[in-house]
Amino acid sequence: MGKNQKILFLFFFSSISFFSSTDLFSQNEPFSKITIALSAAKQGNSTLINDFWENNFSLEGNLESPFYFGEVKTGLIFIPFTGNSVKYPNFKIFYFYLGWNGVINFYNNFSASFGISAGSSFMYFHADQIAAFEKTESELTFSTGAKIKYQIAGKVGIFSKIDLIKIFTKNNIDLILISAGIDFTIDTPKWLENFLK
């Protein structure tokens, strides 16, 4: 079994175990609140992709809401890459995902969460030498990560997290993003809560 398969096995069985052990996690009324989060990240690893391109920062915006257990989340991560030489055109990745977090609440407004996500990475290449239809690509992407959060005031929190992202191109793109950010929680509008339920 290859490395990819092991990761997928872990991904799969961890998700199954999460779904099977609802008592571990805090329970809320599903979709009763929405947490809006913004964060900035730095790549924390060096892999094959970095032989050709560099990433200096990335940005993420996401929404989280209580689910039947844990939280459901959706978000977008923007990851720009700059070529190491003119042969390698700059490109941007927009990773759109849907995911789930298991949340454990500690004392003193601290909480920890760990989650899994899946979605698509849309890639835009800044290259004049290629045809228009070749300037974009999309690929299945999985990610998993852990987050520590501190609730500063009633609705505002700060957090730091680490995400492992795997983009399933023929030669996988494996990224580790280390990030920090701020979030804000609101009550879900009734019409939206009814729609989501």
């Binding site: 050709f52 290449f125 690929e139 299945l140 023929k170 030669n171």
Partner: peptide, 16 residues
Amino acid sequence: NETGDPGPYKFTTYET
């Protein structure tokens, strides 16, 4: 969608 696109590697020696 099937996985396995070349992604950015199409500009490199890892082109598929």
